[in-house]
Design a protein around this nucleic acid. Structure first.
Lengths: 153, 153
DNA sequence: GTTGAAAATAGCACGAA
DNA sequence: TTCGTGCTATTTTCAAC
């Protein structure tokens, strides 16, 4: 059980603009960010440090095009574990690297997992490894109408 | 309709290690990345440039803790548009900023959307704006057994 | 928060494998 | 082609205000 922590950091307009700019390009120079938000470079540096310290910025990372990486097929899998199998199923999903994201949800479909595969055969392999422990409902991703973005700040 | 493009870039071991390192911290100095993969800084610079050029790296971005940002509730919403309403529903989802991610899927539940809200009331507001055009099934996220990660390289 | 100097870092041209 | 070296330019950090 994780400890609840009150995040005291409150965002002002400039922090919001900084986060938006960093979301678009996290490797742009501090000096450029400073120009964008109208502050000096050291101020921006300090704000970014505080955003990390307060936990709002978890990390700087890359957005990878998984198709270009060799995974042409993405799918969303709803997973309903058989009675008594929830923990086993959770562990299996964590151990199968083709699942690149998984949420545990309220309701009967305990897990919702994002799967990437190189072929339909590979998809079958992945699903087979769950078949003894859960019901699965798989839907292939056709398009992405909304790409990951920030909520309103 | 987007043009199909054959991505000719093929990853070697060093590219894979670079991507993994960038995923962990996209702002670390090139010189540090060079040390990690055992090449000189200019070589690493050039490799990163090529990974971007080939589209494998789409962008450098930040991983934000949305709870710390003030959105304590996340939910997954399956959206089944009423007949003839698919395009309207897609547009609505795109315009509602509490949806931070949305996939269009095969099967009857055309859309799957990731929602962030500050309260249960706000969740109701968001869902109300779809109620005339679609059936929705909402499940609240309890935990995240697998956080976004790279597939096997 | 800002400014200005020192230190660290990145980019470029060129030569080597 | 791909990588390494040395040089220059840019960027970041630190101190003082």
């Amino acid at each position: 059980m994780k400890r609840l922590r009150s995040e005291t950091h409150s965002l002002d307009e400039i922090d919001a603009r900084l986060l938006a700019a960093l979301e678009q390009d996290a490797r742009q120079p501090i000096s450029e960010l400073a120009r964008l938000v109208g502050l000096s470079a050291p101020s921006v540096s300090e704000r970014i440090r505080k955003l990390q310290e307060s936990g709002i910025i978890r990390s700087f990372t890359v957005d990878i095009d998984t198709k270009a990486l060799g995974y042409p097929i993405g799918a969303m899998v709803r997973v309903r574990p058989l009675p008594g199998k929830i923990h086993l199923v959770e562990k299996l999903i964590q151990e199968i690297p083709q699942f690149i994201e998984c949420y545990k949800l309220t309701g009967e479909d305990a897990f919702f997992a994002h799967m990437l595969v190189r072929s339909v055969e590979e998809m079958d392999d992945v699903l087979e490894s769950l078949v003894d422990h859960a019901m699965t409902y798989t839907a292939v991703i056709k398009t992405t109408p909304v790409k990951r973005r920030l909520p309103p700040l």
